[in-house]
Amino acid sequence: MAKRQVLEQLAEWIKGSSYTLLLTGAGMSTESGIPDFRSQNGLWKNYDPAYVSSVDALEDHYKLFHEFYTLRLQDIETRIPHQGYEVLSRLQEQRLIHAIATQNVDGFHLRSGGRNVHELHGSLSRIYCHACSQEHSIEAFKKGTACSCGGKLRPSIVLFGEMLPEPVWEQAIAAIEQSDLVVVIGTSLQVYPVNQLPSMTKGRTALINQEPTAMDHVFDLSIYSSAKESLIELEKLLDR
Rank of each mutant, 00 (worst) to 15 (best):
C132E: 04
S156I: 04
A140S: 14
L153P: 07
I157V: 15
I138H: 01
C147V: 11
I157T: 15
C149T: 09
I157Q: 05
C129E: 02
R154G: 08
G150L: 05
P155F: 01
S156E: 15
C147W: 06
C129I: 06
C132Q: 03
S137F: 02
G151V: 04
V158H: 05
L153D: 07
G151A: 04
E139G: 02
Y128T: 00
S133V: 09
G151T: 02
F141N: 01
R154S: 04
G144E: 09
T145L: 12
F141T: 06
K152R: 15
S148G: 15
G151S: 06
K142T: 11
S156K: 11
I157N: 05
K143G: 06
L159D: 02
Q134M: 14
F141E: 02
S133H: 15
C129P: 04
A146R: 07
A140T: 03
C147Y: 11
I138L: 14
A131W: 05
H136S: 14
I138A: 10
G144P: 14
S137M: 00
F141C: 08
G144K: 09
Y128Q: 09
I138M: 09
V158W: 07
V158I: 10
A140M: 01
P155R: 02
Y128I: 00
C132S: 03
A146W: 00
I138G: 00
G151D: 07
Y128A: 02
C149L: 12
S148M: 11
A140Y: 00
G150Q: 05
A146F: 01
S137Y: 03
C129D: 06
P155I: 01
K152T: 08
L153K: 03
S156M: 12
P155N: 05
H130D: 13
Q134K: 15
L153F: 06
S156W: 06
G150T: 09
E135R: 11
